[in-house]
Design a binder for these strands. Sequence first.
DNA 1: GCCAACGTTGGC
DNA 2: GCCAACGTTGGC
Length: 152
Amino acid sequence: MNYWLMKSEPNCYSIDDLKQDKIEHWDGVRNYQARNMLRDQMKKGDLAFFYHSNCKEIGIVGIMKIVKEGYPDVTARDPENDHYDPKSTENNPRWFMVDVGFVEKLKKVITLNSLKQQPVLAEMPLLQKGNRLSVMPVSKTHWHYIINLREH
DNA sequence: GCCAACGTTGGC
DNA sequence: GCCAACGTTGGC
């Protein structure tokens, strides 16, 4: 069982959207490192933090689970889509997505700032300088530590 | 294969 | 809106 953190800009797609949709494709990832994780490493049943980036209250806002493993991201082949990539073809798809299911919305956002205050989490990829990956792994230790920071 | 130019991400 | 950090592109 693996743990992940996945970023989304809430004005694009937020935890409230997922709460409403219950299950949604996690499409639009156009970075090879992130693509490889979506395609090769994410397994059904894995859990992931939903992270709001580029917004007023930056941080972890919820929990979701992987309900469908990596398959070709169809938005790459849609010329109308913002993430259209003409180099991705049906026989040789370049980009992948997974399906995620809503698990819970946190009562209170665990802010990026508060994560930075935790020495235990210093090694998290999320907190490393210049890390812009929109999908990244979370260690089991870090996962449980963060889970315990939740307010009930 | 190098690297300059450019685009994007995302915190502040 | 700024800008640092990083990825990608493409000429050579």
